[in-house]
Amino acid sequence: MAAEDPKVKVEGLEEKVHVWPYLVRLEFLCALFVAIGLTVWSIVIDAPLEEAANPTKTPNPSKAPWYFLGLQDILVYFDPWFAGVIAPVLIIVGLMLIPYLDINPKGNGYYTYHERKVAIWVYSFGFIVLWISLIIMGVFLRGPGWNLFMPWQYWDPHRVIALVNVDLPYALGVRTYNMAMLVGGAIVSGYFALGTAAYFFMERKAIKSVGFLRMFIKVQLYLIMLGMVIKIVLRIGFNIKYILVTPWINI
């Protein structure tokens, strides 16, 4: 690597350059391409306008704007208070917290995978898998009744889907309501407690440099993100509806 000649000779070049013309001309070209692209696109493809709004005629499926379909899709796995309210708030707050939780000084201002593998993995997983792919699924694969249809399948509004989902405590053999609530609560709190403990044990050498609070918040966000994946797998793979059922909230 080191023996290779650099493509551009950089020794003689100055560290700083004038914005006019070196940056402004790039911006101008970029703006030109975007403006032409947008104009051509707008001439060729018309924005949709359906029939007039009619509150008595509900389309099936009713879909939110495409950029919210990831959130609409997790409504399959979670109740609205989580999928529609808590999850978006957690996403926004979690994103804002990133610079304060990730205190790895490496990889500041350049592309690197090896110096910050975990950070890249977590963000890419959240963005590409949990956000973008759920949006693609919501736009193209969700048909009437929010059922899953493959692209070659007819969107049959009368398709029958067997509702065989049960709650996790029921699947484990618990039959009384109060006992189910206890078992469900134990599973959920046990997941967070064990997850937190395991993470702190794994990262025990870093606690001092990272700080307790920072590490605690970080692991809670990781566990919520992972928990969403676990819930999706449980629902699709094992027909589990809820893990914790209470008179107030279900998880």
Partner: peptide, 9 residues
Amino acid sequence: VFLTGSYKP
């Protein structure tokens, strides 16, 4: 911005 770590101090 995330990939380049540009949110760092």
